[in-house]
Nucleic acid binder design. Structure first.
Lengths: 329, 329
DNA sequence: TGTTTTCCGGAAATCGTTTTCCACAATTAT
DNA sequence: ATAATTGTGGAAAACGATTTCCGGAAAACA
């Protein structure tokens, strides 16, 4: 394997000089740079990222932490977009990505998690979809031992950034649109996880709408479960209701229940997943571009790794209607 | 960070001795082992995998190569199962996993790919869903520079194993079952990719069935596309046909087309993805356990890395009918 | 011309392991 | 008792980078 040593020999310079050129340090003359770069070309040299990671604690090894909480095909789609978005951008920024699932961290103490990450020379993390209850992750962020970007969790400090879309506003918007299109004055809201950050925000949004418009509002906890949404709809949905759901999957469950009950009332969802096209009925939903969110998260993490300060980033969303033709491939 | 050096000091032995204990080498007395293990406990030591990888070219860094060819939510489900299956098992076997998408390898020469893998200290690969046309990957396997496990591609040599299910038999079985349940004598077969290994095998299976049963068989290429399956069904499906599809997604497209045409004929699919539950009609399909396949692939790769010889492994499958209740979460 | 400053490039230590080789002690064989 | 064998642990050289520090040449200043 061709190493930096071979490049140095070929270029007739010292190893350290090659390293400097490669990493764009100052104090290297143009002439020397040229020699080195030429040698790199000739030898087809590519630096060993493992050695680099060992040597400088800086070299970008990054963990992607996914919450596989409910495994379902709907979530699969979202997670795949997270993963491909993350890895794609990471390659562009020369970061190595290790994918980790929350299940691998279960029953681990903070100490063990830190040790595991350190043993992998990981210096940065991107955490997707973490819940309020996850004590270990919270303490991990608090400890400020790693640069962290959270997605959909408002946790910011000196070395951690947070990326999200304004869930409350989005929920408000999509429900309001559905309402206006259908002339109702009563809402059944099927919420997500009790302890989820996004769920809480979405509830705020729907409450604001109800207040502003003077609507009656019935909130039930659907745990992001299609089955539960179905059951809750059977139990609580009245003819007057517009059913607003905290996720597309729940919206599909609700819609199916309504169809079984021969009640034809509007339902709206949240996420913009493909499955919505198969729901049998066109619905409003909030489309989040998960790939872009992931890509932004990586970009932000890179900024943190380069010494940037933690901050919040709010991304935009889009209201769409999804039907079969749109999702057909 | 606590290193092997600290452990050595704590245990009152040499660094090399600690390493030997950790890696289970012989020529270490029980007493010394005990001392070392105790020190490891006390210091909460965890070896730095990066340093290990650098030092011994053996230390298990493994790449997971995914073909994202058609991105669709159906494939997302499959890929997520591949990914989680791979990573889950890899953790158990102490392997690091780097996830790579085929798109990252596009337009790269064999040399570049090899260099990239080497620069990452990757010694083993698992390749999911590769096509016959992929010259670079074929040459990569031929070169025998890396231990490789292919899934659904019959490429075996001294250092590469292949894992698959018997696609021909599975296609034969599921079509035969559907046929027997419905008393037809004519098949419209919507095939997958022209150059896919699995597609070819499945065609063999359906041909054998047609021969054995004396059925008329019309084969059309559906490219694993739901849209194309839909169009082909509109164009070619006759009342007498049973429509056999090389994937669930195509089966859904075909089923929808039939419904639009008010022809009610059986359709069968292949894969066993969740989306089948939303098709509106219960269908036969072949259920492949992708998570298990991935897990077996990792196990096999580990065997190769430990010096095992390349071989073939054939996994089993299951015929199922999928309906909404089964997929509801 | 002599002194200071700036600019370049190299030598060497370091990161945390693995692995080879060697020395010593303990055991066995002669 | 001496020689040969074995078992056990340590010293030290890798692995391939990064990074600190230092010395000499060139440029700037006096």
């Amino acid at each position: 394997m061709v190493s930096i040593k071979d490049v140095a020999k070929q270029a007739g310079v010292a190893i350290s000089t090659v390293s400097k050129v490669l990493n764009g340090y100052p104090n290297v003359s143009e002439e020397t740079k040229k020699k080195v770069n030429q040698a790199v070309e000739e030898l087809n040299f590519m630096p060993n990222t493992v050695a680099a990671a060992l040597s400088s604690k800086q070299s970008g090894r990054v963990a992607l932490l996914l919450n596989l909480g409910n495994v379902s095909q709907a979530v699969d789609e979202i997670n795949m977009q997270y993963i491909s978005g993350t890895i794609g951008r990471a390659v562009e920024l020369n970061l190595d990505v290790i994918t980790i699932f929350d299940s691998m961290l279960k029953n681990k103490s903070l100490d063990e998690v830190v040790r595991y990450l350190r043993s992998q020379s990981i210096t940065g993390l991107i955490i997707f979809g973490m819940s309020k209850e996850d004590k270990v992750l919270h303490r991990l962020i608090d400890a400020q031992l790693f640069k962290i970007v959270t997605v959909d969790a408002p946790l910011v400090n000196a070395v951690s950034s947070a990326i999200w879309i304004d869930q409350a506003a989005a929920q408000y918007d999509v429900a309001r649109k559905t309402l206006k299109e259908n002339e109702g004055n009563s809402i059944l809201y099927l919420a997500g996880k009790k302890n989820g950050y996004v769920s809480g925000e979405r509830i705020k949004g729907i409450k604001r709408l109800a207040e502003e418009e003077g609507l009656s509002l019935l909130v039930r906890n659907g745990e992001f479960s299609e089955r539960l949404a179905r059951e809750l709809t059977f139990r609580y949905a009245k003819k007057k209701h517009i059913v607003v759901c905290a996720s597309d999957l729940m919206a599909i469950g609700a819609m199916r229940a309504l169809m079984d009950m021969d009640i034809f009332r509007p339902v709206c969802g949240f996420d913009g997943i493909t499955l919505m096209g198969y729901a049998g009925q066109q619905m409003n939903t909030v489309k989040q571009d998960f790939g872009r969110i992931a890509s932004e998260a990586v970009t932000e993490l890179k900024r943190l790794l380069d010494g940037g300060e933690g901050r919040q980033i709010v991304l935009d969303y889009e209201l769409v209607q999804m039907k079969y033709d749109d999702v057909l491939i």
